[in-house]
Amino acid sequence: MINISDLHKKFGKNEVLKGIDLNIEHGKIYAILGPNGSGKTTLIKSVLGMVIPDKGSIEVLGEPIKKGWKYRKQIDYLPQIANFPGNLKVNELIDMIKDLRNDKGNADTLIELFKLQPYCNKKLSNLSGGTKQKVNLVLAFMFNSQLLILDEPNTGLDPNALIQLKELIKKEKENGKTLLITSHVMQFVEEVADEVIYLLEGKIYFKGTLKALMAKTQQTNVEHAIAALTKTEGYG
């Protein structure tokens, strides 16, 4: 599905990715974890072509993405911070994205699911953070792309919406889609992820199932296992 080899990226003097090799298989849910500033978002943005790597190659669906843009039709992306043009209404934004992608999508069911009907005619600048995140989710889930990349999807959501989100993620997996998710909420990761990719200082420190992670760190709880991973590196 995605093949990354020897990916390097520097921002000025700050070396964010230091040689990432990664193979994402079809039909699984991957959680990308790591402390703040470990390069999770940079990795995701490199796959999307928003960040241009200094070195290394990325293939999506067997095609190298360099200079390409059509492959993004196969990716739905949920950005970390829901920044939208503030002068648009929710409806207008959804229609615009539909038009830009040439795809009708199924926004209506999602709007109903997240109970966004009362906000449809409001401007995005007037929405609360959580509501914006729901709109963000609608935009990410409304198309039927093979690959879903969710950057901290649970930020700002109320418990009800969180349950709906988990349901949505499960449903997408059943439909045979591949998901890449970053999150700092370990309980959420534990519930949805098949495999964990742990990034530390720009390198992949661990990749495998949650079970393998707990076995490696000899912990019984994911949160502690992750903390242990960070510590070993920190003291090592």
Partner: peptide
């Protein structure tokens, strides 16, 4: 001012 709009567009299948 259209920074957000640009970021939204960059993730879509549109040539940069």
């Amino acid at each position: 001012n259209s920074k957000e709009f640009t970021e939204l567009l960059l993730a879509q299948p549109i040539k940069r």
